[in-house]
């Protein structure tokens, strides 16, 4: 680092504390103090949220690693071992929370807010279809969200990488018909796919979405040539 001029403005006050807390550079005692303020000071909590939000794209660099099954078992023991559930558990029955965090709304988890859409409660009754694409044989996982109004499939890449010279291709399968290609899935955490009209009809009918592993550039035959690495049913929410 080069020492530059001394008149550059520094971030100060609560704004600096919030940013430093989010980055994680503070020593333990100052972190604890900041954590206390978050609990008691709404304005400060909002500053922290804003920095969390600004920096959150950096979290894309965290490589997902499936945790060993023992971890979930240990969590279950801690939370659900006694017949008495955790004191705050009832909050999980809150509808707002469900929409934000849980259930078929886990799809909403990555998608609904991720695309800055309004929560379902405030939306007109536009049809929305979601699918969790996964397979027991692979670690590939996508969440798919079909917005009929925007005629767009939003894909959120949850886990599983493709080899450098291979591509994932998205397919829609309706009934016994052969799969129809929705094209190669671009790399990235969030990808939008714009299906053509005939395929949109299939999607609206609640078809199956599948992801196959193909040579770079996609299937040369127009039908899946590699293994299906993730599959899921489109369902309305």
């Amino acid at each position: 680092m080069t020492p530059t001029d001394h008149h550059e403005p520094e971030l100060g006050g609560d704004e600096a504390l919030a940013a430093e807390y989010v980055l994680g550079v503070l020593p333990a005692s100052e972190r604890q103090e900041a954590a206390r303020r978050i609990e008691t000071d709404v304005d400060f909590a909002r500053l922290v949220d804003r920095w969390e939000d600004s920096f959150s794209p950096l979290a894309a660099a965290y490589v997902p690693v499936e945790a060993p099954a023992a971890v979930k078992q240990a969590i279950d023991r801690r939370l659900f071992a006694s017949s008495k559930t955790a004191p705050r558990a009832s909050l999980w029955n809150s509808l707002a929370l469900w929409r934000g965090l849980a259930a078929a709304a886990v799809v909403a988890l990555a998608l609904v807010t991720a695309w800055n859409m309004q929560p379902p409660a405030e939306e007109p009754a536009a049809p929305r279809l979601v699918a969790s694409l996964e397979s027991d044989e692979t670690d590939v996982r996508y969440l798919a969200f079909y917005d009929e109004t925007a005629q767009t499939i939003h894909l959120s890449h949850v886990a599983g990488a493709r080899a450098p010279d291979q591509d994932f291709e998205l397919w829609v399968i309706e009934g016994d018909e052969p799969p129809a290609s929705l094209g190669v899935i671009a790399t990235g955490e969030r990808v939008d796919v714009h299906p053509e009209e005939t395929l949109r009809t299939k999607l609206s009918a609640g078809a199956v979405l599948a992801v196959s592993l193909e040579p770079g550039g996609g299937s040369p035959t127009g039908q899946p040539t590699g293994p299906v690495v993730a599959v899921g049913d489109l369902r309305s929410i």
Partner: peptide
């Protein structure tokens, strides 16, 4: 119901958070 939701949430997010 809330436990099922939690299980699903765990399944969908544990890899990222473990990372």
């Amino acid at each position: 119901r809330d436990r099922a939701a939690f299980d699903l949430l765990y399944r969908q997010t544990n890899a990222k958070l473990f990372g």
